[in-house]
Design a protein around this nucleic acid. Structure first.
Length: 502
RNA sequence: GGCCCCGUCGUCUAGUGGCCUAGGACUCUGGCUUCUCAAGCCAGCUACGCGGGUUCGAAUCCCGUCGGGGCUACCA
């Protein structure tokens, strides 16, 4: 009984959301580059949580910084999510009741709220220039006081105002941070408190009138009725600012989203993952032949675990098992070796038809085949013998190219290995034996060569077969020899063996 | 510097006061199997950062300390 009770708790399928509101989770990247593994881990958890609770998964593009966000990156982000199978219920392409889902198309909404905050006195115009702010920050640092806006423009004299205006200065809109502190409950970290002495008045709207993240993110989460914000740990300290905006919007506390700050995914060098340390873009993994389900499975294990010594989960199982309660608070390091191991496992789980479908693009891209039905037939019959030998789809080209080479030649590095006297004896004998074979299947071939070489010549199998392997496949690493010979066919096999005899 | 977060094998993790002489996975090492390479199987190495408490009993609770990270923008 104890065991089953245990099981129930670990694998409960009921939503963990206790509120009566339907769960709405958003993934809101700012595509300033290709989505990387950290982004995707966040997207995966957002998606899994939404699916687990039967809620909605919302995809929003935070492109308020048009200097850095490009249309290509926005498109790439959508492609990546789709490729991984993280389909969204509301967002670009599919739309939804709270759109548009690109912040650059919601400027009027932010402007209206900004005007309201200004009118209410929650926000104020600030005319301090970047240079002035910079200088004052330096002074604060030198004086060893908390750096941040000093509130100079909270009360601005009419004279100064006239002066700044005559200079043509464009004001930013700043949120007034009241005295006190903000405490919120993070689902992963528990209660977190920030004293407002360390949360300076922050900018909502730039001098040119464009909104900043601090405004847009809070407005959108409220207006899109987001109930759960699962995002990167780097945003933890910006949470009090979002809550301040909610207050200014007049939102009641019960309508604030629940926050959960996910731990970082770090690179090998123990720093926050970025483009500088290693291959982090998902596109890179796709090109290398990593399976989307393997990437998701591996990433799910970074900062979360299903418990019960379980690791291999399908996407469906992930949505069933995922709970925020089981998410870690400590950062995880990305380990390529482990990803490769999981990728290999996932490849082995594929049916041959599925594997064929997935490997064909790689074979075509590498010029091994052009994609004719005849070629695909050969590939399909060869896949069973290499399925357990590859860790990524891209490796299939190297494994199977010997079957398709128009002009075959043994690798120059391998050539000397079959030119010694013993190898030549083996090859001559092989030529002789295979020529006389009535039927060309791997069992017959194996039997005949074993009789002639191992028993007949008294050679060790690894010695004897190695020479044939190199002569026929061009490398000392290949799929199983006899199956390879069968697939190659009698004519080409004999041709290659003959060509290797001096 | 200030504020905040974090700390179990090399890495990802199990662990929520006794089931822990700390379990699993990846990596690594050795072995088995074997036509190469893999896969598979078996075995081994290696961890509760440190110091104090609380308790009959602590990886689990508290305090301190050290270490790592994030933020500190008219980036997100």
């Amino acid at each position: 009984m104890k065991e089953s009770a245990h099981f129930l708790i670990r694998y409960r399928l009921v939503p963990t959301n206790t509120s009566d509101k339907p769960v709405r989770v958003r993934f809101a990247p700012s595509p300033t580059g290709d989505l990387h593994v950290g982004n995707i881990r966040t997207a995966l958890f957002d998606w899994a949580y939404a699916r687990h609770t039967g809620g909605q998964f919302i995809f929003r593009i935070e492109d308020t910084d048009r200097e850095r966000v490009t249309d290509e990156y926005i498109q790439a982000a959508q492609d990546t999510l789709k490729w991984l199978g993280l389909n969204w219920d509301e967002g670009p392409e599919v739309g939804g009741p709270y759109g548009p889902y690109l912040q650059s198309q919601r400027l009027d909404i932010y402007a209206q709220w900004a005007a309201k905050f200004l009118a209410q006195g929650d926000a104020y115009h600030c005319y301090c220039s970047s240079e002035e702010l910079e200088a004052r920050r330096e002074a604060q640092k030198a004086a060893n006081v908390a750096p941040g806006y000093d509130g100079k423009c909270r009360k601005i004299s009419q004279d100064d105002l006239a002066k700044y205006k005559s200079e043509g200065r464009l004001p930013v809109l700043r949120m007034r941070m009241p005295d006190g502190s903000t405490t919120f409950t993070d689902s992963i970290r528990g209660d977190v408190t920030f004293d407002h002495n360390f949360v300076p008045d922050f900018v909502l709207v730039r001098g040119d009138g464009s909104p900043l993240y601090t405004l847009a993110v809070a407005v959108d989460d409220i207006m899109m009725k987001v109930t759960h914000v699962l995002r990167g740990e780097d945003l933890l300290s910006s949470t009090p600012r979002q809550i301040r905006v909610y207050q200014a919007m007049g939102v009641s506390e019960s309508d604030y989203p629940t926050f959960a700050h996910l731990p970082f995914v770090m690179g090998q060098d123990n720093a926050k993952l970025s483009k500088r340390n290693g291959e982090v873009s998902i596109a890179w993994y796709r090109e290398r032949g990593f399976l989307p389900e393997a990437i998701c499975n591996y990433l799910a294990l970074l900062g979360w675990s299903p418990g019960e010594d379980r690791e291999n989960v399908t996407m469906k199982e992930l949505t069933e098992l995922f709970t925020v309660e089981r998410v870690h608070s400590s950062p995880a390091r990305f380990d390529m070796k482990k990803l490769e191991a999981i990728n290999g496992d996932k490849i082995r789980e594929l049916t041959i038809d599925e594997l064929l479908k997935r490997t064909t693009p790689f074979l075509v891209k590498d010029g091994v085949i052009t994609g004719t039905p005849d070629e695909l037939e050969v590939v399909k019959s060869a896949l069973p013998i290499i399925q357990e030998r590859i860790a990524t789809l891209a490796e299939v080209s190297q494994m199977l190219k010997f079957l398709f080479m128009a002009k075959f030649a043994v690798d120059s590095e391998e050539l000397p290995k079959i030119q010694d006297e013993q190898s030549q004896v083996v090859l001559k004998k092989t030529d002789e034996v295979l020529k006389g074979l009535a039927s060309w299947d791997h069992e017959t071939i194996h039997e005949a060569l074993k009789t002639a070489l191992i028993e007949g010549l008294g050679l060790k199998p690894r010695i004897a077969f190695s020479a044939i392997r190199i002569a026929v496949t061009g490398s000392h690493i290949s799929p199983p020899l006899f199956e390879s010979l069968e697939l190659l066919g009698r004519e080409r096999s004999l041709e290659r063996i003959a060509a290797s005899i001096k």
